[in-house]
């Protein structure tokens, strides 16, 4: 598991009070029951932890944890390139 995945898992557990293991295919909204307030919580926590700005693109869908991890890695890569 990548470092990003481990961190995302940790943050999700805290926000959702989740005890079980999380898989890449786990759906953030449907499986973890994260509502719009929880989603805001999550995005802000991730932005703070990884020091990036998470911006959705036009047709992007961030449904699963795998999507989330990819998104974060892309933004980190972008931030690293500019930094």
């Amino acid at each position: 598991m990548s470092e990003t995945f481990v961190e995302v898992e940790r943050i999700l557990r805290e926000i959702c009070n989740w005890a079980r293991a999380l898989q890449p295919e786990t759906q953030i909204v449907a499986d973890l029951g994260l509502d719009s307030i929880g989603q805001l919580d999550l995005v802000v926590a991730l932005e703070n932890r990884f020091e990036i700005a998470l911006e959705l693109d036009e047709d992007q869908e961030v449904i699963t944890i795998a999507h989330l991890v990819d998104w974060i890695d892309r933004e980190r890569g972008r931030a690293g390139a500019d930094g």
Binding site: V29, Q39, L42, L56, V62, I63
Partner: peptide, 8 residues
């Protein structure tokens, strides 16, 4: 403003 997560 746009939703931050999920689908648009």
């Amino acid at each position: 403003p746009p939703v931050r997560l999920g689908r648009l």
